[in-house]
Nucleic acid binder design. Structure first.
Lengths: 226, 226
DNA sequence: CCGGATCCGAATCGATACTG
DNA sequence: CAGTATCGATTCGGATCCGG
């Protein structure tokens, strides 16, 4: 038995031995958005030591979670295997669960394009969402967020948009939203769209402010709904 | 910012900082079965160092996941808070995901009453399950497993049954099943009940062998159904 | 026996530098 | 761009010890 094994024969234990090491699930989170190069991952996980990223990618490959693939043109990307993609509902559920415990950001805490993309997926309510096409800014990150027929689309605009991630809509967005960290109180249903505006948690810098109602219906994490 | 923080403002990151440390989620797994004393946890997680158990319990309390409570009579138990119990669907989903990657047990790998109880919950199919009342043995572990009206009940018989866990049915079980690790191929749908019997993956030491059909319908983990 | 605390060697992680 | 090498700082694991 490996020295660092948990020594149990159990599905949960097996899962944790595959994706429980430090940073591993954040790598999976970013790869759920799309294939990424080594340097994309390194940038998206700003504080990961490069040797740890290297080690984790090897472990995730050995575990059948991640695969190396040649990128069209040249270079190579890491992408999730089918088995790795099966983690999506788990990562989304963990994001919802963790959302409940989020306070204000610590100094130095970053929001990255991939983490914000996954946060939107985490909160997305396919049944309640009406059509929507906005530009969303959080700190330096800018995303084009669309909802069409209950399907969420996210395209990363800045910074350093990777070539992968879908195609931009032709038309201009309906509105441009600039969100502060306090936006989580709107997602969490603890303030109304009107209150969020009044408290400066979010600004609508272009378009009709009533877009916030549509936004709040589409993205929602209610307290403890399993 | 804490030195060991991931430095990101994101729900997944927050979740991992709460329950991502080594052993933490296995403590949660065992507490999902019921409140446990310090020594129960130490026995159920045989290879955990006592200082790590102590440290994790403090961290989980600080994170609002676990709470200390006085035990009826005297002594004390650890139990999940409401927030901690909200991890149940996540732990079950992780167990299903990890199940797909389970091979044969390494030497020294243990099956504990709590891990087997959670494994049964992981695989339980409420919609397909017909009524059932059996005794299930895996190694040293013995459980009384009942299904009544689509609801799963598990009572731990051995070894060292804790006082918590529900009440034994009055009558004798319909059958006694003795399972080997290969039982996972039955749960995984890779062999039929008849094949499982023929290959010695499971033995019916009392009662009608046809109980295995009922068992196989009630406990099932299909490959990659998200 | 219960519920830990303490100590110490081994392994891992984090930060930085360096290379094909 | 995609990592490897190195090394000090932390954490983990195993054992022992202690107060009730």
């Amino acid at each position: 038995m490996a020295a660092r094994s948990y020594g149990q024969y159990c599905g949960v234990t097996t899962a944790i031995e595959l994706i429980g090491e430090r940073w591993a699930l954040l790598i999976v989170r970013d790869l759920l958005v799309g294939p990424r190069r080594y340097s994309d991952l390194k940038q998206g996980l700003a504080r990961i030591p490069t040797n740890i990223l290297s080690t984790r990618l090897k472990e995730l490959q050995a575990g059948g979670v991640v695969r190396r693939a040649p990128m069209r043109g040249r270079g190579l990307v890491y992408e999730l295997t089918e088995y790795g993609r099966a983690l999506e509902p788990i990562v989304l559920a963990l994001g919802r669960w963790g959302f409940q415990a989020m306070g204000d950001p610590g100094e130095g805490d970053l929001v990255t394009p991939d983490s914000l993309t996954m946060a939107l997926r985490t909160a997305f309510q396919p049944d309640a969402a009406r059509d929507l096409d906005i530009e969303l800014h959080v700190g330096e990150v800018a995303l084009r967020v669309t909802v069409r027929a209950g399907t969420l689309g996210v395209v990363q605009l800045a910074p350093a948009a990777p070539p992968i991630g879908g195609r931009l809509p032709e038309a201009d967005p309906e509105a441009v939203l600039v969100a502060e960290p306090g936006i989580r109180h709107l997602i969490g249903g603890r303030v109304t769209p009107g209150e969020a505006l009044a408290q400066g948690l979010v600004h609508v810098t272009r378009g009709d402010v009533r877009i916030l109602d549509t936004f709040a219906d589409a993205f929602r994490i209610d307290p403890l709904p399993a």
